[in-house]
Design a protein around this nucleic acid. Sequence first.
DNA 1: CTAGAACCTCAAGTAAGGTTAAGGTCAAGT
DNA 2: ACTTGACCTTAACCTTACTTGAGGTTCTAG
Lengths: 160, 160
Amino acid sequence: MSLKCDAKKVMLSVGEVAKRSGVSVATLHFYEQKGLIQSQRNAGNQRRYSRDVLRRVAIIKVAQRTGIPLEQIGKALSVLPPGQNADQQHWQQMSEQWKVDLDLRIAQLTDLRDQLSMCIGCGCLSMTHCPLRNPQDRLAAHGAGAHFYPVADELTDSSL
Amino acid sequence: MSLKCDAKKVMLSVGEVAKRSGVSVATLHFYEQKGLIQSQRNAGNQRRYSRDVLRRVAIIKVAQRTGIPLEQIGKALSVLPPGQNADQQHWQQMSEQWKVDLDLRIAQLTDLRDQLSMCIGCGCLSMTHCPLRNPQDRLAAHGAGAHFYPVADELTDSSL
DNA sequence: CTAGAACCTCAAGTAAGGTTAAGGTCAAGT
DNA sequence: ACTTGACCTTAACCTTACTTGAGGTTCTAG
């Protein structure tokens, strides 16, 4: 169990990082391939991680919980000097941006909830009158992958 | 442009449904294949939809915005008699359930936001102390695909 | 009748975020 | 030395929600 240098081990194996960070070994490979983390190799070509990888993985998981896609997380992390810990300042920048994103997502969902509440007793889903059918609010303005509802040229509400 | 029976056309072609509902023809095929909508065929094997499909698609899109997966939407819709419009009661049942789901998701994200806010100035991400790292709240209790963070047996906070 | 638009089916591709498997190497304990 | 576990790479597979393409049929207007 105990390795050569137990006292102040500098580098971690992939298995150790997996255990300590709570993600699988395969996931660490995957993250490395995507450029979210980096490793060095020992003489036998095995990955050795510096401790900062634990913090990076922690940050990745938090960001993922907010709904940030991996690619964007990668970009945010890429400003960190590799092999170094994210310092207080970096963390603040990232987390503040993520909070903005999260706030927006919450606002979108809250709008939707309110509209849904209003419409529960109605159920008309009218193309022209129902707020649920007409998301030209901040959703339409911001939605990363939002589909705009095409103008329903011919459609009268009678068609519902 | 005008078809045979312009006045009170009973059935709609797939192209018409696509135009009016704002989804692509391929998506309608896909939904049909997944059992979310149904069609009849004319003599030449082309799909003919009754008008209620427009309402179904509208419902699908609203539900998707709340984050409900298609399969679950399909189950909710499957209680509707095919070829008939969702009545007021069905709509209410569905939308109320979806509002519950949505409320939960909003609550999860709000918790996360609050934790993030607290942690922006801290940045410790401590495995044992940081609330961001310890989501044993309703997230852990409810999360459909939530990964539990394994107990970090060996991990002391110094390892971050 | 014929061109072209709209439709059909089936298969494959895409994107994200991984997981699983196959076949081979390295390292640690006995 | 030998076994076993940890590690390596590459490649294929998974899910969700679709999109795209190929090759063939049907419908509608002129």
